[in-house]
Computed example of a mutant assay.
Amino acid sequence: MIDLDDTDRALLRLLAQDATRGAGAMGRALGISQPAAWRRIRRLEETGAIRGQRVAVDRAALGFGVTVFLGIKLATKGRVSLEDFERAVTAIPEVQVVQHVLGLFDYRLRVVARDLADFERVLRRRIMTLPGVGQVEANVLLSEEVRPGPLGAP
């Protein structure tokens, strides 16, 4: 675990908001020099506190107007390995996030689709045919508000 001071936390919040800003702009916003901001960013990268930079993609603008969260309970944990399921599910392009969780379900997936008919096709033809799939519960996303967490990451 890395020790973070208040400036590191503020820098993480700025990076989470817009990582495309240069170190000079980050430094000015934090009241530190550009080289100091750059050194802090490099240290956060080297220690693994920052794992790459991402672009926020507007799924609806790309034609994917439906997001569904699926709970998947595996029926045959003994016969089908978790690795087999994970390998198969991550090969489905509509599956954006795969989380192995504790609780009622074994996995939680975030799936995007063009519309409900497209989601039904993905569910029936791709997800329900995966190795070991037993029970499935779907929750359709109606709206979403993303707020930064305590250190800036959503």
Rank of each mutant, 00 (worst) to 15 (best):
M1P: 11
D3K: 14
L4G: 05
L4T: 07
L4D: 02
D5T: 05
D6I: 07
T7N: 10
D8E: 07
L11T: 02
L12D: 00
L12Q: 01
R13P: 01
L15E: 05
L15V: 14
L15K: 01
A16N: 13
Q17I: 12
D18Y: 08
D18C: 08
T20C: 10
A25K: 13
A25T: 13
G27E: 04
G27W: 01
R28Y: 05
L30C: 09
G31S: 08
A36C: 03
A36F: 03
A37G: 07
R39V: 04
R43F: 06
R43K: 15
E45V: 14
E46L: 10
I50S: 10
R51V: 13
R51G: 11
R51K: 14
G52Q: 09
Q53L: 05
V55T: 12
A60P: 02
G63V: 03
F64T: 07
G65E: 15
G65T: 12
V66C: 06
F69T: 12
L74E: 00
S81E: 04
S81D: 05
S81P: 04
E83I: 07
F85C: 01
E86K: 00
R87I: 07
R87P: 04
I92S: 09
E94Q: 15
Q96E: 15
V97I: 15
V98T: 03
Q99W: 11
H100Q: 09
V101T: 13
F105H: 07
F105M: 14
Y107I: 02
Y107T: 00
R110F: 00
R110D: 01
V112Q: 12
V112K: 06
A113W: 00
A113G: 10
D115M: 07
A117V: 11
D118Q: 05
F119Q: 03
E120V: 07
E120W: 04
E120G: 04
E120A: 12
V122I: 15
T129H: 09
L130I: 06
P131N: 12
G132L: 08
G132Q: 05
A138W: 00
N139D: 05
L142N: 04
S143Q: 10
E144P: 10
V146N: 01
R147A: 13
R147F: 11
L151C: 04
L151G: 04
A153S: 11
P154D: 03
